[in-house]
Simulated scan of single mutants.
Amino acid sequence: MSLISVDQTITIAMSVKDRHVSAKWYENMLGFEQLYHADEAGWSEIKTNTVGVTIGLGEHTKPAPGNCVPVFGVADLDVARQKLERAEVKFDGETEVVEGMVKTATFYDPDGNALMLAEDLTAGAN
């Protein structure tokens, strides 16, 4: 039995120099669809051809080569985080919140691979 329940979405988060250029590349090369650009947050998302899987592009002046973090959707990030912390799962700092958009927390598997939990905050914004 698992400690937390993730939903049926996965976002693969990557660091890029220019989100707009990268999104266009994925559209032209792989046939993916741009979902949105959130310029104020330095974030863009594109829809892959796999149901429930998106690619998130975080803009950084010096992206880490090979940087890729799977992001698992959860209904309540605070509850999920508390359960994982009680099981001694290591988190990287505090939970980040972009009001009206998303709440995220990065954590690590036993081998030090970064993973992230995300709670969608847009549902109540409409």
Results as ranks from 00 to 15, higher is better:
M1L: 14
M1S: 14
S2I: 03
S2E: 05
S5C: 00
S5Q: 00
V6M: 00
D7F: 01
D7Q: 07
Q8H: 04
Q8T: 08
Q8C: 04
T9R: 00
T11H: 03
T11W: 01
T11D: 09
I12N: 00
I12L: 00
A13T: 01
M14P: 08
V16E: 02
K17P: 03
D18H: 09
D18I: 12
D18R: 09
V21S: 08
V21Q: 10
V21T: 11
K24E: 04
K24D: 06
W25T: 08
W25R: 01
W25I: 07
Y26L: 00
N28F: 00
N28K: 04
N28R: 04
L30N: 08
L30Q: 02
L30G: 05
G31M: 07
G31Q: 08
E33T: 05
Q34W: 01
L35K: 02
Y36A: 12
H37R: 00
H37V: 06
A38T: 06
A38Y: 03
E40D: 13
S44P: 09
E45L: 01
E45N: 04
E45Q: 07
I46T: 07
I46A: 04
K47C: 15
K47T: 15
N49D: 10
T50H: 10
G52S: 09
V53Y: 03
T54I: 11
I55E: 05
I55N: 03
I55W: 03
G56Q: 08
L57K: 05
L57W: 07
E59S: 15
E59I: 14
E59M: 15
H60N: 15
H60K: 14
H60V: 15
T61L: 15
K62A: 15
K62C: 15
G66A: 10
V69E: 14
V69S: 13
F72T: 13
V74A: 11
V74T: 12
A75W: 11
A75N: 13
L77K: 05
D78F: 11
D78E: 14
A80E: 05
R81W: 15
R81I: 15
R81G: 14
L84F: 12
A87M: 11
A87W: 09
E88T: 09
F91P: 11
F91V: 13
D92R: 06
D92P: 08
G93P: 10
E94K: 08
E96S: 11
V97H: 12
V97W: 10
V98T: 03
V98H: 01
V98G: 05
E99A: 12
E99Y: 03
E99S: 11
G100T: 06
G100K: 02
V102H: 08
K103I: 10
K103N: 09
T104Q: 02
A105H: 01
A105T: 07
T106E: 12
F107P: 06
Y108C: 11
Y108D: 13
G112S: 09
L115H: 06
L115S: 08
L117T: 07
A118Q: 03
A118G: 05
A118W: 02
D120F: 03
D120A: 06
L121M: 10
T122R: 04
T122L: 05
T122C: 05
A123F: 08
G124C: 01
A125V: 09
A125G: 05
N126A: 09
